[in-house]
Structures are given as structure tokens and as C-alpha cells.
């Protein structure tokens, strides 16, 4: 036993309430999603059978278990709508993450190279937009990207284009929105790894004959890879399930999995299929989630 373990007991007691809360409102609901994804669609309120009924006892539960079916999942893999939205989600997330990396890295690098006393200010400036509403930021872009919005006006005034360009309801608009919304998530982990890097390493590299460019590729970049990984996963995972941005900015042609889920749920009132889509989305996210967890642990162990 030690002072830490004397401390640990009351600390664990403190965790009981949030523990129970998370079990009840996070873990248990997943059970419901899983269960309903395995049940039949019905035109009823709520629109699915069978409903979990504890009052009927074990027999009813057994009966309910026998009625579970994989029909919804069969639908997911057979209908091209679902498969294409699944693939599109992955494609959009990968593309956006790549763009975010290309834009975020120079910014994070610039921040880390700032004089020490300016760095907290720069970090504040990156974080503050994160505090303003996400929806409002998307809306702000609709303002700019609309047919006679500022962007088109500027392009016309500069004679870059002769007729207004259609921006809204395109993938371009969606990528702008995604990049805009997720940029802080990419910059902050990158900045964290770049800022704690010892400047003497670069000096050592140039002392040993590396040009600034080579010093970057041979020293800075490899050492920043944990930050790259963290930033990429921190963006990739939520983007896969993104709903609001593609819904507001992309065209109605093809949908991401989050949109499909929403459509099934709110428009088609097909809760079992929506639940099956949620389970499928979750399965897609488990590998990157585990990867992210491992990366975090390694960074923690590495004394970061």
C-alpha cells in the first residue's frame, strides 16, 4: 500500500456515479441498437417488432431471441444504395483527411516555429473558432458559396470567371465545409508534437550537412508522425459518420452513411434498417478507434 493507494479508494468511489451513468446512457443504448437492427420492420409506433418486454419474463425473451433476424443486414449488403453510401463515406473521409493534413501541417509547423511567447496566442486563435457553433460555421460558408455570394462576386470582379460558378450542392462545397470544421482537430495534435520537438535536432541535422529541406524530411517529419496519426484519426473517425455538412453543402446525388441512416430513420421511419446502418458504421469505425487508442497509449508511455 502507498499514499497513492490511500488516495485511490475515495477516487474510485467518486467514479461510481459517472460509471453508472455511462453504462446506462452509453453502453445500454448500444444494446438496443444492436437488438433493433436484428428485428423486423413494422408499421407501428414505435415502428419495429418485437419490443423488449421485461414483464413477460424469460419465455418472452426467448421468443424474442428466436425472432431476431439478419434481414436488415442482408438488405444493407444487397442494396447498392447502402453499399455506395458506405464506400462514399470512406472515400470522403480519406480525401478530407488528406486535404486536412496538407493544410494543417504547414499551419501547425508555423505555430511551432513562432517565438515562444506568441505560441499560446496562436493556439488560442486556432481554438476559438471551435467554440463558435459548428452549425453557424457551416452556415457562414453557405453565405459565401451561394450563387451570388461573396466568392462568386470576387471571382467575377477579378475576371477569373465570366459567369457565376455553382459552388453549393457540390462536393467541393462539402470538402470546404469539412476542412473548415475539422481543421482545429488536425492542427492541435500536430502542433503538440511539433512544439515539443527539440530545435537542437534540426541544428544537429544541418550541422551534419543536411539542407533545411532534407533536415525536415529526415528529422522533423518522421518525429511528427505520432501527431500526424493522431490528427488524421481524430478527423477521419467523425468525418465517416458526418451528417450535417454533406446534408447542407453536398449535392443530393449520393449520400454518406450518416445521411442514409438519417433518411431511413426520419423519412422512411425504418428504425431496424437505420439501426443496422448504425451497427455497420460502428463496425467500420472500430479499427481506427482501436488504432487511435493504441497511439494515445504509446504517446503517453513515451513520456509525451
Amino acid at each position: 500500500m502507498s499514499a497513492r493507494s490511500i488516495f485511490a479508494r475515495p477516487a474510485r468511489l467518486a467514479a461510481i456515479a459517472p460509471y453508472l451513468w455511462m453504462v446506462l446512457f452509453f453502453l445500454v443504448p448500444f444494446g438496443f441498437v444492436l437488438k433493433i437492427s436484428l428485428s423486423q420492420t413494422a408499421i407501428a409506433q414505435p415502428p419495429y417488432v418485437p419490443l423488449f418486454d421485461l414483464t413477460a419474463g424469460w419465455a418472452a425473451i426467448k421468443a424474442a431471441l428466436s425472432e431476431l433476424s439478419l434481414d436488415n443486414f442482408k438488405l444493407l449488403v444487397s442494396d447498392s444504395l447502402y453499399i455506395s453510401s458506405y464506400l462514399r463515406s470512406i472515400f470522403v473521409a480519406v480525401t478530407s483527411t488528406a486535404i486536412l493534413l496538407l493544410i494543417g501541417y504547414p499551419i501547425a509547423y508555423g505555430m511551432a516555429r513562432l517565438p515562444q511567447r506568441w505560441q499560446p496566442i496562436a493556439m488560442m486563435l486556432v481554438i476559438v473558432p471551435f467554440w463558435t457553433s459548428f452549425l453557424i460555421r457551416i452556415y457562414a460558408w453557405i453565405n459565401i458559396l451561394q450563387h451570388d455570394g461573396l466568392l462568386n462576386k470576387m471571382l467575377l470582379a477579378l475576371h477569373i470567371v465570366s459567369t457565376p460558378v455553382v459552388w453549393l450542392s457540390t462536393d467541393t462545397a462539402m470538402y470546404i465545409g469539412i476542412v473548415y470544421s475539422y481543421l482545429p482537430f488536425m492542427i492541435l495534435p500536430l502542433y503538440a508534437t511539433l512544439a515539443k520537438m527539440d530545435g537542437a535536432l534540426i541544428e544537429a541535422a544541418s550541422d551534419l550537412g543536411a539542407s533545411p529541406g532534407r533536415a525536415f524530411w529526415l528529422v522533423t517529419f518522421p518525429l511528427s508522425l505520432p501527431g500526424v496519426g493522431a490528427g488524421a484519426l481524430l478527423c477521419f473517425i467523425p468525418i465517416v459518420g458526418e451528417f450535417v455538412i454533406p446534408d447542407l453543402l453536398a449535392g443530393s446525388g449520393s449520400m454518406m452513411i450518416g445521411q442514409t441512416l438519417w433518411l431511413e430513420f426520419f423519412t422512411n421511419k425504418d428504425w431496424p434498417v437505420a439501426s443496422a446502418a448504425a451497427v455497420a458504421l460502428l463496425l467500420l469505425l472500430i479499427p481506427p478507434l482501436l488504432l487511435y487508442d493504441r497511439l494515445q497509449r504509446r504517446t503517453l508511455r513515451g513520456g509525451g
Binding site: I237, E242, F243, G258, L281
Partner: peptide, 9 residues
Amino acid sequence: VMPEVISGL
């Protein structure tokens, strides 16, 4: 990082 559609549903 969980997509909100899953948490919400």
C-alpha cells in the same frame, strides 16, 4: 469521436 448519428439513435 463517435459520429453523432450513432449516439443520437
